[in-house]
Design a protein around this nucleic acid. Structure first.
Lengths: 180, 180
DNA sequence: TGCAGCATGTAACGGGTTACATGATTTA
DNA sequence: TAAATCATGTAACCCGTTACATGCTGCA
């Protein structure tokens, strides 16, 4: 129920951002666990502004380009806190089309399944190395990663995403062996 | 794009099922990676019937209760195969509300974060033990798990779900240690 | 006989994607 | 100067959830 609302409030908790910036954030590590397209973000920003959870300032870039720089209001911070405190009653299912296909593996030719699993293995490895590069960059910064630094959440999400990919890869390799 | 369509076709590949049966399937291990409510399933069954991918037979249960038992047509099998062969160009994001909150951990009180992580740990452990019980039952059956037995997909999905939960739990425990 | 589970549907609404649409700025 | 990127919006459509609505069957 309107989780995007909280994602935006959370992003604005630490810094002022434009709609475009928010869209970009979902292309980084955060995007491993939540995403939204700009076509969803702009109407949501409008709505949050109307509700008083955020406000914006028009900043002129160059000579003509007007951009809206959003910041969270105290009302918005309160709203964010309430969501953060609340435990979810039922964690939503992680839909995975590849695993759905796997469930129906008996309807495939063995060779076909082999190809499909190898393709998935390549993709997962690509994602893993991308994530590992991001982690290296984060660790290079030398900024100590402590609780209550905005880096901390970033770091936790990255390590979780990396471990998740590693686990997926191990399982894929094990399964590919069974298909030989 | 209409993945539920293929989920239903896949389920009907091995056995004849009613709408209710299909709904039940999503409550089992398959539901770890894909789900749908009956309110989505019945209209989809209607659509697939109109498209000629499935057909049904009315069976009377007891004295009055008429149920529709669906089976896949050869056209449906062809459609299913095409989907199974095709590699996904972009694997969809696994949305995870808990990880979204984690990204914003710097906006939480330490104690609050601690409670949240412990709650998640309990939930994940519960899910893990449920999955492990299901795996035991599957292995008790003594039916050899070979490629092209419908059990194989079931087995693969279960082992993947179990490994996924284990990885999540390890990460949660590691993070809880950091919060002490 | 009462209750859990079997069985099937529809309606309203909200979430999310794809496509349409436009224009400015920065950098190679 | 061309291309990539920054920047913002809308419209149509599909997917999915919640809620509404009904009735039968099997078992304790």
């Amino acid at each position: 129920m309107r989780i995007l609302k909280y994602a935006i409030l959370g992003l604005l908790y630490n810094e002022k951002l434009t709609g475009y910036d928010i869209t970009s954030k979902f292309k980084g590590p955060l995007g491993q666990f939540w995403t939204a397209k700009h076509s969803q973000i702009y109407p949501e920003l409008r709505k949050l502004t109307d509700e008083g959870f955020i406000q914006y300032e028009v900043v002129v870039q160059g000579t003509k380009l007007e951009k809206k720089v959003y910041e969270i209001t105290s009302l918005g911070e309160k709203e964010l806190s309430e969501w953060l405190e609340k435990v979810e009653r039922d964690s939503s299912v992680n839909k995975d089309e590849f695993m759905l296909k796997t469930y129906f593996i008996s309807a495939m030719e063995k060779e076909e399944a082999y190809d499909l699993f190898n393709d998935q293995l390549v993709k997962r490895k690509e994602n893993l190395s991308k994530l590992q590069k991001t982690l290296s960059l984060l660790e290079e910064d030398e900024i100590p990663i402590t609780f209550s630094s905005p880096q901390f959440g970033h770091y936790l999400v990255l390590t979780r995403a990396i471990e998740r990919e590693k686990g997926y890869i191990v399982w894929l390799e094990k399964t590919i062996d069974l298909l030989k």
